[in-house]
Simulated scan of single mutants.
Amino acid sequence: MVSPSISTDTNRPRAIARWLFAVAVLVVAMVAVGGITRLTESGLSITEWKPVTGAIPPLSEAQWQAEFDAYKQIGEYRQVTGPAGMTLADYKFIYFWEWFHRLLGRIIGLAFAVPLAWFWIRKAIPAGYKPRLVALLALGGMQGAFGWFMVRSGINETSTDVSHFWLSIHLLTALFTLAGLVWTALDLLALDRDKSARPARITGLAALVGGVLFVQLLLGAWVAGLDAGLASDTWPLMQGRLVPEYDASRGFVWAALHDPFLIHFLHRWWAWVAVAFLILLARKVRGIERRASIAIHSAFGVQILLGIATVMTGVALWIAVLHQFVGALLVAATAWGMHIAGRRAA
């Protein structure tokens, strides 16, 4: 990465950092709304992707009926919601959450693209940061595309849900974008304080922590995609035993990618591996920035408790949503800690 040079009077690193933090807040909200969309089984309620006109929901009963009729053609309605007696009023409820999720995505796109253009035209972006900001914009565009690929994977006559692989790509892209926003904003704040400051580096410990946390987030996304949270409502045992029974007929690797019981088991116990590495990171940065250490400890502590509560309540909606919301906050706190360690190295 090109190191930012000494900025001119037109450069405004602090203003850009504040804008990036604001977008990061929107991304956290997006992750939470995505959790509601998933948990209410709303993701397949809109069967078409209309980037512009789709921002306007149905405005007449005829339009509502047309959307409902399109939904009736897919496997989720034919095999799950239809036999359960879904009404038009029920459909409007799940439509709202998917529509709101997509609308928030559009808002985030505008909240990033318009200020970026303004800062660019005003020549307010410090040297070396334009490529990174464009990359973040591209990640946002990819996030929207991945979201549609995810929805499309479940829109057919046989599927009753989206692919858990596409769901994980969709969610992890959002979380990676969140980390990138926080990291870049922190680099810009450092530049505002010291015009000769270099961008923070990714240290060996930070890379290790990031990799371990990535695995945990990936498993969590698969748990969500396969409804694997319902595999057990007890903790720490599953089915009265530590290691649950799972389909091993096609080998461990296949089961680790597809079997909800094994994936649930891996997610709940890999969490403690993630905790151990997060503690190492928090201890590393405690003497440099105590607030970051507290943020990391607080986030993973609350996240563990919410994870257990989610299991023991049978995936109660708002507890599960909070679990996903705090997961996003944990990513932001970890990015903060990794940046502090990398700033010292730089």
Score class of each variant (00 low, 15 high):
F100P: 00
I304N: 00
A299Q: 09
A124M: 09
A271V: 14
R291L: 12
H339S: 01
S159N: 05
E76Y: 08
G180F: 05
G128K: 02
P4W: 00
G105W: 05
I36W: 15
R343P: 00
W235P: 05
A70Q: 13
G141L: 12
F261K: 15
P131N: 12
D194F: 09
A15Y: 01
A179K: 02
L178I: 03
Q324H: 14
I202P: 00
I304V: 15
G43E: 11
Q143N: 14
S3Y: 13
G141K: 05
D90G: 11
P244N: 08
S153N: 01
A231N: 06
I107K: 00
V326E: 10
A332T: 10
P260S: 12
A111I: 06
L178C: 04
G140D: 09
A32F: 03
L329F: 15
A135T: 12
F261G: 03
W99K: 07
L217W: 07
I56S: 08
V243G: 04
L205N: 03
T234K: 06
P236M: 10
P115L: 11
R106N: 09
T334L: 01
A292H: 03
G105V: 04
R78P: 00
V182Q: 02
Q216H: 07
L262W: 01
D259H: 04
A346W: 06
Q239N: 10
Q143G: 15
K72H: 14
A231R: 02
T177C: 07
W270H: 07
I340N: 01
L186S: 11
V25W: 04
R241Q: 11
S196A: 14
L59M: 13
G82Y: 10
R12S: 13
G287D: 12
W99P: 04
A113D: 04
S232F: 02
W120H: 15
G105H: 03
Y95V: 07
P51S: 13
A174D: 13
G204A: 13
S232M: 03
V275S: 01
S168K: 05
A55N: 10
T53R: 15
T160F: 02
V223F: 03
A66N: 06
A248S: 14
V33H: 00
Q239S: 07
D259T: 05
G220A: 12
A309V: 10
G144Y: 04
S159H: 03
G144D: 03
L88N: 12
W336L: 08
L181W: 01
A135I: 09
P13Q: 10
I56A: 12
E67P: 00
F21Q: 04
I56D: 05
T158R: 01
V209R: 04
D247L: 03
W120T: 14
W97Q: 06
